[in-house]
Design a protein around this nucleic acid. Sequence first.
DNA 1: AGCCCGCGTGAAAACGTTTACGTTGGCGCC
DNA 2: GGCGCCAACGTAAACGTTTTCACGCGGGCT
Lengths: 339, 339
Amino acid sequence: MAAATIKDVAREARVSVASVSRALNGGGGVTAATRERIHAAAERLQYIPHAAARMLITRRTHTIGALLPDLYGEFFSELIRGIDLAARACGLHLLVSSSHGGAAEAAAAVRSMQGRVDGLLILSERVDAAFLRANLPKALPVVLLNSAVSGPAFHVLNIDNHGGSVAMVQHLLRAGHRSVALIAGPAGNFDASERERGYREAMARYAPRAALSVVAGDFTEESGYRAGHELLARAKRPRAVFAANDMMAVGCLAAFKDAGVRVPEDIALAGFDDIPIARYVTPALSTVRVRIADFGRLALERLAQVIEHPGQESPSADTLGFEIVVRDTCGGIKPEENS
Amino acid sequence: MAAATIKDVAREARVSVASVSRALNGGGGVTAATRERIHAAAERLQYIPHAAARMLITRRTHTIGALLPDLYGEFFSELIRGIDLAARACGLHLLVSSSHGGAAEAAAAVRSMQGRVDGLLILSERVDAAFLRANLPKALPVVLLNSAVSGPAFHVLNIDNHGGSVAMVQHLLRAGHRSVALIAGPAGNFDASERERGYREAMARYAPRAALSVVAGDFTEESGYRAGHELLARAKRPRAVFAANDMMAVGCLAAFKDAGVRVPEDIALAGFDDIPIARYVTPALSTVRVRIADFGRLALERLAQVIEHPGQESPSADTLGFEIVVRDTCGGIKPEENS
DNA sequence: AGCCCGCGTGAAAACGTTTACGTTGGCGCC
DNA sequence: GGCGCCAACGTAAACGTTTTCACGCGGGCT
């Protein structure tokens, strides 16, 4: 017993396939009685329209693709969660594809998604304007996440990396820490470079005489752990450390603990993102909160809009706000937690 | 300029569409010279076969669907990561759908994936044998993850929840802790109940005189935090706590810290899963390691096999092994970490 | 009473592939 | 030199929808 087709339903309901299609999709053009009969027949036969056939004629897949980096850590978990929730709400399916190391892999991923999706959500360091123009059909709606690509050609949704960094560094300085070091993110990563820019700018503005101190990281806990040890080994330890994301902050915290350095008494620490575990490490991590799931939701909703009204929406670059969340690792005055 | 179709390529290469199809897909039936010409034409036109049209005739989507619970926490992040990696390796796309609260939602999700996927990976408490028989076409390959469904009807891949629990409880007892409490997972969850079963069995076997002590949780950090406080409030505190997953263990650890209870000196603690952050909390969390990404990979590879050889593979229930990872929270003798 | 309009319905084209089946041409074999 | 066979290639059907168009028919208008 192969799956029932629209023809079977038509025969069962003693109407033409056209009427079946109309009854099931478009509201109009069918008498209430026949619609009833058709629905009953469809029900009886457990009819489910063949998605591919529909895509073929409709040119709509009701699917959006998400191009992501290696899905490591809670950031992406939350991001996908937000996207997926919103997608379900919009009646869209979600096709994910991650871990394209090089531009070539990313290009392959984009190409293989061609025709399977109505639009693309892209979060990738490898992707710039040239890449997009080379690999994407003009018509395919795209929303870029945390991308350096700017200008009026593409829809972009960013986290306020720069603003968040400035605010956090400022907060650390205000809390009385004279020297603030940065554990930077991977080179070439947009978020990382923006956060570093914020750090440098805030230091220049609010602590112009303090020495800058930057140690490399790659957004993983392990790199944060290594960076923590590296900072401790330096001739003059900083009084505070700002990690460019929470995972590195968590790794760094572990390094400090291993070395017997107290946080925040000996060294203060802050992260970026406010991933769920941030509040459960000890001491609880002060961080720059960005509502990651909301970020994903917003991105998808924006994409859905663009898909719905193609060309109509003029490309815009939105930026998602942040909050400074003061917990236990950054020392100084601590207002009550704003949950 | 709409996308190029196979006809355009045929015209450009001065052959029929059939030859184009043969040249690009099947190896045989075309002269080397014409194949060359066709490839050149396809290249020139940037031809990408229309996925839907191909699906329609081929009845293969080259896509697998993953039905998951609410994607909260690192467990799912890792799981999806493993699945996605393996999918790419197999040349398959990944359609994810999460957060089906009730059976009705799950059914809707399954139905809407009908025809869009060649097979399904299902990890859901709501799904049992009856559900599957009611909502799935017989022909659709399925691999069940961590499912109570057994018997020869379905392919199942499980984590050794029971074995891991027994081993960890045994380890805690061997380390000298006389009383071990359990922070249980959500009711109705298969992993949760199996882990609880393991706890009870191990206690009965290795500490038959010790009182059992179980407090409810739901696999989130927050529930672990609450459970931690609840345990401390009890008349007689346990000497060790076994949390049914790492997230709850992390939450519980935070609760103990907040209450000034030292781990492991005052109370030992262990978790389950070995999510990435487990080693970065302080003290580092002892836990039952299951290689989550591998779990996802294995599941996908199994599904790919079933898809490739339909009906041929006889349903089997595999169980993934575990390791006890002794870090700092469980006290007692601590061998060097086996990374 | 005739006309036209609109509504419900059916027939058929179209979407872009794959593939079964013919058709050609060239070549070896008798 | 004719016969048949095989390889290369073309023709057309098929996949399951949606949608356009035509058709018939009833009723309100002039």
